[in-house]
Amino acid sequence: MQALLAHPNVVAAVVALSALLLAAAVWGHRRLRTAHVRQQIDWKTVQSFNGEYYRPLERILGEDDQRFLERLPGYQPEIGGEFRKQRREIASRYLDRLEREFRQLHLLARTLVRDLEHDRPELAVALVRSGAEFRWNLWKVRLRLTLAALPLPVSALRPVSPRGLVEAAVWTQAQIRVLHAQAAASA
């Protein structure tokens, strides 16, 4: 015991690490135990998804309207600032909804792949990839929006397109349709 007490810093560090990892293990256990609750799919969201709904997002995030506004007589920087602020808020709401819908679609697709009777590794990997790409693209768009709110020369940044986000959701929806048709046929 003396040997342990002689190195209180090392012992404290390992105990803290143990507590952290133990908490992570308990969290993992609880999540696995309640997976059936968390996988409740919001059918309303899944059914109501429509890729067309997000078509305006590209325009909202684009620069064309801003440039058009700047060319109008009587344009003032304050008007442009207010216009951009409103656009950011609208885009943010679109992105929140898209994220919510994609999460439900992706959860359903993962659940359907999980329950397949036949091994489909390429589809499982494609789902993982589409999920990762969606999150990466969403992060890029959100970062661009955040930076645009700051007094920085963001116009120098490359504009980001939301097309990849919507395409990922539409692709996931198509996979759900195919997977569910297969499941219905084999039932």
């Binding site: 990892l21 133990l22 059936h36």
Partner: peptide, 29 residues
């Protein structure tokens, strides 16, 4: 991986995975 898909484990499998994780985590630390 199990959480991502999300796999519903049988109770014994869940106990095995968690028990082994704690066993090896404790041993390692």
């Amino acid at each position: 991986f199990l959480l991502y898909f999300p796999v519903l484990l049988r109770r014994n499998s869940l106990l095995l995975v968690t028990g082994l994780t704690l066993y090896f985590l404790g041993k390692a630390l």
